[in-house]
């Protein structure tokens, strides 16, 4: 397994980048605790995590795509339409389990098409998933849904509803699910063959292919996995607000997802970063959003602050891991 060690660069560099983010998080957290009245309460901290749990789950899906030197911009659209389809089917009287199975199948098919386009047609991932997000949203909206906003009616009180709004020993179920997905993703990436392949591909796709890594099937797997996790995030979202608004497919949410992934130190050039990076990034963004909401900062100003922090993070990243003119990849955007 050591053959697939993530990179030739010394490990302390990544630790350093992650430490910077952890330090910023701690400072921001402490700052808010001191200056804001209702910040440092158990319930607020829980709500802090709960509010970003969905973002975090999406971030986990995105992280494994980015580590393999890809990106999945269709993740939000996929989540929105597949879960909306599930709700619509359930509202039409279908057993909830069957509706979930069909919705999941829809999500996975979209992921599969993504993977095929990237792996076999060789369309750049940015593009394939961008266009696929638009196409998938349009197709499902036109063919399956009769409204932008689909309410959760059937099964609204049973176990299904619990997924997004239940609690285990006082901890919101969405937070628990976030934790479980993070743990599973960690095991997948670090202790399974496909997971190691993803790191190898992210580090150097050509070398990975030369050494016999099944690059194309692994890429397909990544996007199918991403779709599946996104579907789960969507279920959490829908069951917590009792509806699914398909228009989030057109929102900036996917940029927020990239934000939590990149800010924790997962480089867009692939092969770098761990699940811990996503957790750190999620925590920082959660803290910021929570604090700013308590301070009643306008949403637009929040976007600016978030973006500036991301900008600082990638500037620091480029200073810590400078790109070399002689070795950087042509056409790496």
């Amino acid at each position: 397994m050591s053959l697939f060690a993530a990179s030739g660069k010394p490990a302390w560099r990544y630790v350093q980048q992650e430490n910077i983010v952890i330090a910023i998080t701690a400072i921001v957290f402490l700052g808010f605790s001191v200056t804001l009245n209702n910040f440092l309460t158990t319930s607020n901290v829980l709500s802090l995590i709960q509010n970003v749990a969905i973002l975090g789950i999406l971030g986990l899906a995105m992280a494994q795509a980015i580590i393999g030197r890809g990106i999945d911009l269709s993740i939000v659209a996929n989540m929105a339409v597949s879960v909306a389809a599930t709700l619509q089917l359930a509202n039409g009287g279908m057993p909830i389990a069957l509706a979930i199975a069909l919705g999941l199948a829809l999500a996975l098919v979209i992921g599969l098409i993504n993977g095929m386009l990237i792996a076999y047609v060789e369309i750049p991932a940015i593009f394939a998933t961008l266009a696929m997000g638009t196409a998938a949203y349009g197709f499902v909206r036109a063919a399956l849904l009769n409204d932008n906003l689909i309410y959760l009616k059937a099964g609204g009180d049973g176990w299904f509803k619990w997924i997004g709004s239940g609690q285990i020993v006082g901890i919101p179920s969405s937070v628990v699910l976030f934790g479980i997905v993070a743990a599973l993703m960690h095991v997948f990436l670090h202790h399974s063959l496909p997971g190691r392949f993803i790191y190898a591909m992210g580090d150097n796709p050509l070398a990975a292919r030369t050494t016999g890594v099944p690059v194309r099937p692994t890429i397909v797997l990544q996007y199918v996995l991403s779709a599946g996790v996104a579907f789960l995030a969507g279920i959490v979202m829908a069951t917590s607000v009792d509806s699914m608004e398909t228009r989030i497919a057109r929102s900036n949410l996917v940029y927020d997802v990239i934000l939590v992934v990149v800010i924790g130190g997962i480089g867009l050039s692939g092969g770098k970063g761990k699940i811990r990076s996503v957790l750190v990034g999620t925590l920082l963004i959660g803290t910021l959003l929570n604090g700013m909401t308590i301070m009643d900062v306008q949403y637009t100003l929040q976007s600016i602050i978030k973006s500036l922090i991301l900008l600082v993070a990638i500037i620091v990243d480029s200073l810590v891991n400078p790109r070399d003119e002689q070795t950087s990849q042509q056409g790496d955007i």
């Binding site: 369309i123 196409a135 949203y137 349009g138 197709f139 499902v140 909206r141 932008n148």
Partner: peptide, 20 residues
């Protein structure tokens, strides 16, 4: 509703696929 997005997405994909 949605058909426009769908068509635009498919056209984009097809164009890039041909280009690539």
């Amino acid at each position: 509703t949605g058909a426009t997005s769908f068509a635009l997405g498919v056209v984009l994909l097809a164009a890039v696929a041909i280009d690539v």
